[in-house]
Amino acid sequence: MEQKKQTYQPRTLETQLPFSWKRLFFQWEWMLLLILVAVLLFGSYVSPYFLNYPSLRDGTMVFLDKALIVFPMAMIMIMRDIDISVGSTVALSSVVMASLYTTAGLPMEIAIVACLVTGAVCGLINGLLIVKFKELSAVIVTLGTMILYRGIAYIILEDQAAGGFPEWFGFFGWGYVFGIPFLLIVFAALAIVFGILLHRTTFGRKVFAIGNNPTASRFSGVRVDRIKVIVFMLAGLLAAITAIFLTSRMGSTRPNIATMYELDIIAMAALGGVSTAGGKGRVVGVVIAVFIIGYLQYGLGLINMPSQLFLIIVGALLILSVAIPKIGSLMKRK
Protein backbone atom coordinates (compact mmCIF):
# COMPACT_ATOMS: atom_id res chain seq x y z
CA MET A 1 0.00 0.00 0.00
CA GLU A 2 3.02 2.20 0.48
CA GLN A 3 3.68 1.98 -3.22
CA LYS A 4 0.96 4.35 -4.29
CA LYS A 5 2.24 7.07 -2.06
CA GLN A 6 4.64 8.70 -4.43
CA THR A 7 2.12 11.22 -5.64
CA TYR A 8 1.93 14.63 -4.04
CA GLN A 9 -1.32 14.59 -2.18
CA PRO A 10 -0.98 17.20 0.50
CA ARG A 11 -1.14 15.28 3.75
CA THR A 12 -2.25 16.96 6.96
CA LEU A 13 -1.57 15.97 10.54
CA GLU A 14 -4.13 16.59 13.26
CA THR A 15 -2.95 18.58 16.28
CA GLN A 16 -5.99 17.90 18.47
CA LEU A 17 -6.93 14.58 19.96
CA PRO A 18 -10.63 13.79 20.11
CA PHE A 19 -11.96 13.61 23.67
CA SER A 20 -11.92 10.11 25.11
CA TRP A 21 -13.39 8.92 28.39
CA LYS A 22 -11.16 5.91 28.24
CA ARG A 23 -8.05 8.04 28.17
CA LEU A 24 -9.32 10.13 31.07
CA PHE A 25 -10.06 7.22 33.37
CA PHE A 26 -7.74 4.49 32.21
CA GLN A 27 -4.84 5.73 34.28
CA TRP A 28 -2.76 4.36 37.13
CA GLU A 29 -3.41 7.46 39.24
CA TRP A 30 -7.13 6.66 39.62
CA MET A 31 -6.17 3.22 40.85
CA LEU A 32 -3.81 4.83 43.35
CA LEU A 33 -6.54 7.18 44.57
CA LEU A 34 -8.78 4.18 45.21
CA ILE A 35 -6.02 2.51 47.19
CA LEU A 36 -5.51 5.70 49.19
CA VAL A 37 -9.21 5.86 50.02
CA ALA A 38 -9.06 2.20 51.06
CA VAL A 39 -6.10 2.93 53.32
CA LEU A 40 -7.95 5.85 54.93
CA LEU A 41 -11.07 3.74 55.48
CA PHE A 42 -8.94 0.96 56.92
CA GLY A 43 -7.31 3.48 59.25
CA SER A 44 -10.61 4.85 60.47
CA TYR A 45 -11.86 1.29 60.95
CA VAL A 46 -8.96 0.18 63.12
CA SER A 47 -8.55 3.38 65.12
CA PRO A 48 -11.01 6.10 66.08
CA TYR A 49 -8.11 8.57 66.30
CA PHE A 50 -7.10 8.19 62.67
CA LEU A 51 -9.58 9.88 60.37
CA ASN A 52 -9.74 13.50 61.43
CA TYR A 53 -7.96 16.58 60.19
CA PRO A 54 -5.44 17.12 63.04
CA SER A 55 -4.54 13.46 63.04
CA LEU A 56 -4.07 13.23 59.27
CA ARG A 57 -2.20 16.55 59.31
CA ASP A 58 0.23 15.64 62.04
CA GLY A 59 0.59 12.12 60.73
CA THR A 60 2.37 13.52 57.68
CA MET A 61 5.30 14.54 59.88
CA VAL A 62 6.02 10.87 60.47
CA PHE A 63 6.72 10.00 56.88
CA LEU A 64 7.15 13.12 54.76
CA ASP A 65 10.82 13.68 55.57
CA LYS A 66 12.08 10.81 53.47
CA ALA A 67 9.38 11.41 50.90
CA LEU A 68 11.21 14.56 49.81
CA ILE A 69 13.83 12.39 48.11
CA VAL A 70 11.20 10.56 46.10
CA PHE A 71 11.09 13.35 43.49
CA PRO A 72 14.69 13.15 42.32
CA MET A 73 14.56 9.36 42.78
CA ALA A 74 11.63 9.27 40.36
CA MET A 75 13.75 11.21 37.86
CA ILE A 76 16.65 8.81 38.35
CA MET A 77 14.42 5.81 37.82
CA ILE A 78 12.85 7.42 34.75
CA MET A 79 16.40 7.62 33.37
CA ARG A 80 16.78 3.84 33.98
CA ASP A 81 19.21 4.35 36.86
CA ILE A 82 18.88 3.83 40.57
CA ASP A 83 20.45 5.44 43.63
CA ILE A 84 20.70 3.25 46.70
CA SER A 85 23.08 5.58 48.50
CA VAL A 86 20.48 8.19 49.51
CA GLY A 87 20.01 6.81 53.03
CA SER A 88 23.74 7.00 53.63
CA THR A 89 23.81 10.50 52.18
CA VAL A 90 21.12 11.55 54.68
CA ALA A 91 23.22 10.12 57.51
CA LEU A 92 26.48 11.71 56.36
CA SER A 93 24.91 15.16 55.80
CA SER A 94 23.24 15.00 59.19
CA VAL A 95 26.42 13.91 60.95
CA VAL A 96 28.48 16.62 59.24
CA MET A 97 25.95 19.24 60.29
CA ALA A 98 25.74 18.04 63.88
CA SER A 99 29.46 17.67 64.40
CA LEU A 100 30.24 21.07 62.87
CA TYR A 101 27.80 22.57 65.36
CA THR A 102 28.71 20.58 68.44
CA THR A 103 32.38 19.68 68.03
CA ALA A 104 33.62 22.51 65.85
CA GLY A 105 31.36 25.04 67.51
CA LEU A 106 30.31 26.71 64.28
CA PRO A 107 27.01 28.62 64.11
CA MET A 108 24.02 26.44 63.23
CA GLU A 109 23.35 28.43 60.05
CA ILE A 110 26.77 27.53 58.69
CA ALA A 111 26.30 23.93 59.77
CA ILE A 112 23.06 23.78 57.79
CA VAL A 113 24.77 25.17 54.70
CA ALA A 114 27.53 22.58 55.16
CA CYS A 115 24.87 19.88 55.38
CA LEU A 116 23.39 20.95 52.05
CA VAL A 117 26.82 21.15 50.45
CA THR A 118 27.71 17.69 51.76
CA GLY A 119 24.58 16.18 50.27
CA ALA A 120 25.10 17.88 46.93
CA VAL A 121 28.73 16.77 46.80
CA CYS A 122 27.72 13.17 47.60
CA GLY A 123 25.25 13.31 44.72
CA LEU A 124 27.82 14.93 42.46
CA ILE A 125 30.32 12.15 43.14
CA ASN A 126 27.67 9.53 42.35
CA GLY A 127 26.74 11.32 39.15
CA LEU A 128 30.30 11.84 37.96
CA LEU A 129 31.30 8.22 38.64
CA ILE A 130 28.22 6.92 36.84
CA VAL A 131 28.80 9.15 33.83
CA LYS A 132 32.54 8.59 33.58
CA PHE A 133 32.40 4.85 34.18
CA LYS A 134 29.30 3.79 32.31
CA GLU A 135 30.29 0.13 32.39
CA LEU A 136 29.94 0.09 36.18
CA SER A 137 26.22 0.91 36.23
CA ALA A 138 24.49 3.03 38.83
CA VAL A 139 23.81 -0.02 41.01
CA ILE A 140 27.47 -0.72 41.67
CA VAL A 141 28.54 2.90 42.01
CA THR A 142 25.84 3.78 44.51
CA LEU A 143 26.37 0.49 46.31
CA GLY A 144 29.98 1.49 46.83
CA THR A 145 29.19 5.03 47.86
CA MET A 146 26.42 3.74 50.12
CA ILE A 147 29.03 1.88 52.16
CA LEU A 148 31.54 4.71 51.84
CA TYR A 149 29.25 7.58 52.90
CA ARG A 150 27.96 5.77 55.92
CA GLY A 151 31.50 4.69 56.68
CA ILE A 152 32.60 8.33 56.73
CA ALA A 153 29.67 9.15 59.01
CA TYR A 154 30.94 6.48 61.39
CA ILE A 155 34.47 7.82 61.18
CA ILE A 156 33.24 11.29 62.13
CA LEU A 157 30.89 10.42 64.96
CA GLU A 158 31.86 6.81 65.85
CA ASP A 159 28.96 5.40 67.84
CA GLN A 160 28.13 8.68 69.52
CA ALA A 161 25.01 10.74 69.19
CA ALA A 162 25.28 14.47 68.57
CA GLY A 163 22.55 16.88 69.50
CA GLY A 164 21.74 19.88 71.62
CA PHE A 165 20.82 22.09 68.70
CA PRO A 166 19.49 25.63 69.18
CA GLU A 167 15.80 25.81 69.89
CA TRP A 168 14.87 27.40 66.59
CA PHE A 169 16.27 24.39 64.73
CA GLY A 170 13.36 22.33 66.05
CA PHE A 171 11.07 24.37 63.82
CA PHE A 172 11.97 22.26 60.78
CA GLY A 173 10.70 19.10 62.32
CA TRP A 174 7.93 20.40 64.54
CA GLY A 175 6.97 23.85 63.29
CA TYR A 176 3.65 24.98 61.84
CA VAL A 177 2.92 27.80 59.43
CA PHE A 178 -0.70 28.96 59.46
CA GLY A 179 -1.61 25.75 61.24
CA ILE A 180 0.01 23.53 58.62
CA PRO A 181 3.20 21.56 59.35
CA PHE A 182 6.18 23.29 57.79
CA LEU A 183 7.34 19.94 56.39
CA LEU A 184 4.02 19.47 54.60
CA ILE A 185 4.36 22.92 53.04
CA VAL A 186 7.88 22.14 51.87
CA PHE A 187 6.70 18.81 50.45
CA ALA A 188 3.85 20.48 48.58
CA ALA A 189 6.14 23.17 47.23
CA LEU A 190 8.67 20.58 46.07
CA ALA A 191 5.89 18.52 44.49
CA ILE A 192 4.84 21.54 42.45
CA VAL A 193 8.41 22.48 41.53
CA PHE A 194 9.31 18.95 40.45
CA GLY A 195 5.95 18.51 38.71
CA ILE A 196 6.68 21.58 36.60
CA LEU A 197 10.30 20.62 36.10
CA LEU A 198 9.44 17.12 34.93
CA HIS A 199 6.31 17.76 32.88
CA ARG A 200 6.48 21.33 31.67
CA THR A 201 10.12 22.10 30.95
CA THR A 202 12.68 21.05 28.38
CA PHE A 203 14.75 19.59 31.21
CA GLY A 204 12.00 17.15 32.13
CA ARG A 205 11.40 16.31 28.48
CA LYS A 206 15.06 15.43 28.14
CA VAL A 207 14.94 13.27 31.29
CA PHE A 208 12.13 11.25 29.72
CA ALA A 209 14.00 11.10 26.42
CA ILE A 210 17.07 9.67 28.15
CA GLY A 211 14.95 7.07 29.91
CA ASN A 212 13.31 5.98 26.67
CA ASN A 213 16.36 5.93 24.46
CA PRO A 214 19.68 7.28 25.73
CA THR A 215 21.49 6.90 22.42
CA ALA A 216 18.83 8.60 20.35
CA SER A 217 18.74 11.39 22.93
CA ARG A 218 22.46 11.96 22.66
CA PHE A 219 22.30 11.87 18.88
CA SER A 220 19.54 14.49 19.05
CA GLY A 221 21.76 16.88 20.94
CA VAL A 222 20.62 16.12 24.49
CA ARG A 223 23.50 16.52 26.93
CA VAL A 224 22.85 13.16 28.56
CA ASP A 225 25.83 13.14 30.92
CA ARG A 226 25.22 16.64 32.16
CA ILE A 227 21.56 15.95 32.89
CA LYS A 228 22.40 12.75 34.73
CA VAL A 229 24.93 14.52 36.93
CA ILE A 230 22.44 17.27 37.72
CA VAL A 231 19.72 14.79 38.68
CA PHE A 232 22.04 12.77 40.93
CA MET A 233 23.13 16.02 42.52
CA LEU A 234 19.50 16.91 43.12
CA ALA A 235 19.05 13.56 44.85
CA GLY A 236 22.01 14.34 47.11
CA LEU A 237 20.68 17.83 47.83
CA LEU A 238 17.21 16.57 48.68
CA ALA A 239 18.80 13.89 50.90
CA ALA A 240 20.53 16.73 52.76
CA ILE A 241 17.24 18.60 53.15
CA THR A 242 15.72 15.40 54.49
CA ALA A 243 18.65 15.20 56.91
CA ILE A 244 17.77 18.66 58.24
CA PHE A 245 14.13 17.77 58.84
CA LEU A 246 14.91 14.37 60.29
CA THR A 247 17.65 15.66 62.62
CA SER A 248 15.41 18.48 63.73
CA ARG A 249 12.56 16.13 64.55
CA MET A 250 14.76 13.68 66.45
CA GLY A 251 16.72 16.43 68.21
CA SER A 252 19.97 14.54 67.74
CA THR A 253 21.72 12.38 65.19
CA ARG A 254 23.69 9.15 64.91
CA PRO A 255 25.62 7.59 62.04
CA ASN A 256 22.99 4.87 61.71
CA ILE A 257 19.99 7.11 60.98
CA ALA A 258 18.00 6.72 57.78
CA THR A 259 19.13 3.13 57.25
CA MET A 260 17.20 1.51 54.41
CA TYR A 261 15.49 4.76 53.45
CA GLU A 262 16.35 3.99 49.83
CA LEU A 263 14.00 1.03 49.86
CA ASP A 264 10.97 3.00 51.05
CA ILE A 265 11.76 5.71 48.56
CA ILE A 266 12.13 3.34 45.62
CA ALA A 267 8.93 1.61 46.69
CA MET A 268 7.06 4.94 46.77
CA ALA A 269 8.29 5.85 43.29
CA ALA A 270 7.50 2.42 41.83
CA LEU A 271 4.06 2.33 43.41
CA GLY A 272 3.50 5.83 42.06
CA GLY A 273 3.81 4.46 38.54
CA VAL A 274 7.44 5.24 37.79
CA SER A 275 8.57 2.44 35.53
CA THR A 276 11.60 0.61 36.85
CA ALA A 277 12.57 -0.05 33.25
CA GLY A 278 12.72 3.70 32.68
CA GLY A 279 10.94 6.27 30.58
CA LYS A 280 7.63 6.54 32.41
CA GLY A 281 6.27 8.22 35.50
CA ARG A 282 4.28 11.18 36.80
CA VAL A 283 4.69 13.33 39.86
CA VAL A 284 0.95 13.14 40.69
CA GLY A 285 1.12 9.38 41.00
CA VAL A 286 4.24 9.55 43.12
CA VAL A 287 2.60 12.04 45.51
CA ILE A 288 -0.45 9.80 45.98
CA ALA A 289 1.82 6.79 46.52
CA VAL A 290 3.72 8.71 49.23
CA PHE A 291 0.49 9.26 51.13
CA ILE A 292 -0.63 5.65 50.66
CA ILE A 293 2.57 4.26 52.14
CA GLY A 294 2.82 7.01 54.74
CA TYR A 295 -0.69 6.72 56.10
CA LEU A 296 -0.39 2.96 56.12
CA GLN A 297 2.67 3.28 58.32
CA TYR A 298 0.96 5.91 60.48
CA GLY A 299 -2.22 3.84 60.83
CA LEU A 300 -0.33 0.71 61.80
CA GLY A 301 1.60 2.74 64.33
CA LEU A 302 -1.61 4.05 65.91
CA ILE A 303 -2.83 0.54 66.67
CA ASN A 304 0.58 -0.60 67.88
CA MET A 305 1.03 -3.10 65.08
CA PRO A 306 4.64 -4.25 64.92
CA SER A 307 6.57 -2.00 62.58
CA GLN A 308 7.95 -5.13 60.92
CA LEU A 309 4.54 -5.75 59.44
CA PHE A 310 5.04 -2.47 57.66
CA LEU A 311 8.28 -3.79 56.13
CA ILE A 312 6.38 -6.70 54.65
CA ILE A 313 3.61 -4.48 53.34
CA VAL A 314 6.04 -2.09 51.63
CA GLY A 315 7.85 -5.02 50.05
CA ALA A 316 4.62 -6.56 48.85
CA LEU A 317 3.35 -3.23 47.49
CA LEU A 318 6.61 -2.72 45.60
CA ILE A 319 6.36 -6.15 43.99
CA LEU A 320 2.68 -5.78 43.17
CA SER A 321 3.12 -2.34 41.65
CA VAL A 322 5.85 -3.53 39.28
CA ALA A 323 4.40 -6.98 38.68
CA ILE A 324 0.79 -6.08 37.86
CA PRO A 325 1.57 -4.31 34.56
CA LYS A 326 3.91 -7.16 33.58
CA ILE A 327 1.40 -9.87 34.41
CA GLY A 328 -1.18 -7.94 32.43
CA SER A 329 1.00 -7.95 29.34
CA LEU A 330 1.95 -11.61 29.88
CA MET A 331 -1.72 -12.53 29.88
CA LYS A 332 -2.33 -10.47 26.76
CA ARG A 333 0.42 -12.30 24.92
CA LYS A 334 -1.15 -15.69 25.62
Binding site: L263, A277, Q308, I312, G315, L318, I319, V322, K326
Partner: peptide, 21 residues
Protein backbone atom coordinates in the same frame (compact mmCIF):
# COMPACT_ATOMS: atom_id res chain seq x y z
CA UNK B 1 7.16 -12.34 35.78
CA UNK B 2 10.12 -10.40 34.41
CA UNK B 3 10.89 -8.06 37.32
CA UNK B 4 14.28 -6.37 37.47
CA UNK B 5 16.53 -8.31 39.86
CA UNK B 6 17.37 -5.23 41.91
CA UNK B 7 13.71 -4.34 42.47
CA UNK B 8 12.54 -7.88 43.17
CA UNK B 9 15.31 -8.65 45.64
CA UNK B 10 15.03 -5.26 47.34
CA UNK B 11 11.33 -5.90 47.94
CA UNK B 12 11.84 -9.46 49.13
CA UNK B 13 14.67 -8.35 51.40
CA UNK B 14 12.03 -6.29 53.20
CA UNK B 15 9.52 -9.10 53.26
CA UNK B 16 11.98 -11.72 54.54
CA UNK B 17 13.29 -9.33 57.16
CA UNK B 18 9.76 -8.51 58.26
CA UNK B 19 8.89 -12.20 58.45
CA UNK B 20 11.92 -12.81 60.62
CA UNK B 21 10.72 -10.21 63.09
Amino acid sequence: VGLLPIIATLALMNIFRGLTF
